[in-house]
Computed example of a mutant assay.
Amino acid sequence: MADMEIAENAALVVVDVQKGFEEEEFWGRRNNPGADGNIASLIDAWRDGGRPIVYVRHDSSSAGSPLRPGHPGNGFKDYVERRRGTGDGPELLVTKTVNSAFYGTPDLAEWFGSQGVRQFVVAGIQTNMCAETTARMGGNLGYEVLFALDATYTFDLEGPFGWRLGADELARATAVSLHGGGFATVVATDAVVAAAGK
């Protein structure tokens, strides 16, 4: 998207970048090893531009989840935690127990309204779960949603009928569904960072 425009008050929504996702024995094989570097680049671009950032944390209600409250995995990854509270722009922490950041606490749509936000960028974990659900709901609610695919990652997954999809296949399916279905525009991190710096 050579003509991408990032609004002055466009928000970055950083979804569930938590230490618990590093527990490979629980989740299995992940894709996109460069995602964390891309997420960090987006956060830095938003901090430098004084734009609003939303940090979303999943507080799992499952007793065995690495993301459950009280478990070390519930906390943000170190590179995210180091960046929180260090920019000039407004920040929000949303906690949730379901996939969509719009069903968290405090109310994300209400906060967006208070900041005049109509455009936001999604990055984080997992591509096809909470990141995708947040993007889909944002599109349904009338926001302009940019989905930074290479700033997300996911894991291999088994579904019905013995079907199993690899993490890369799931990420492509998310990209096609979001972009082709009109929920969001799927973009690359470098393009977003360049547009944010204009």
Rank of each mutant, 00 (worst) to 15 (best):
I53V: 15
R82G: 12
L93K: 00
E24N: 12
F102L: 05
A2T: 13
F120W: 13
K19L: 10
F26V: 08
R82H: 13
A175N: 06
Q126E: 12
A11E: 02
T97W: 05
A175K: 06
R83V: 08
P90T: 03
I6E: 01
N9W: 07
M137R: 12
M4A: 15
F147G: 03
P33N: 07
Y153F: 15
V98M: 11
L42S: 03
G28V: 02
L92H: 02
D150M: 09
S114M: 08
F102P: 02
T185H: 10
Y103D: 06
V192E: 00
M137D: 13
E169F: 11
D44L: 15
T133P: 06
F76D: 07
S61C: 12
P52K: 10
A45G: 15
I43G: 02
V193K: 00
V98S: 10
Q18I: 01
E91G: 01
T127C: 13
I6A: 06
A167K: 03
D150I: 05
L108T: 01
G85M: 04
Q126D: 11
T95M: 02
A131D: 00
N9I: 09
D44V: 09
D44G: 12
E23W: 09
M137C: 12
F120E: 07
N31G: 05
D78Q: 15
Y153W: 15
D107P: 00
T95N: 05
A7I: 07
F183L: 11
A11T: 06
T97R: 13
M1K: 12
A195Y: 04
D88T: 11
K96C: 01
K77Y: 11
N128L: 04
A7S: 13
E169K: 14
D59A: 15
H58F: 15
M137E: 14
A194P: 09
Q115V: 03
T133A: 07
T95G: 04
A196L: 13
G70W: 12
M129D: 02
G73E: 07
V54H: 05
P52Y: 10
F112I: 09
R83Q: 14
L108Y: 01
G138K: 00
N74Q: 09
F112H: 03
R68F: 09
F76C: 09
R47H: 15
T97P: 06
E91W: 01
A173D: 10
L67T: 07
R118G: 00
A173F: 11
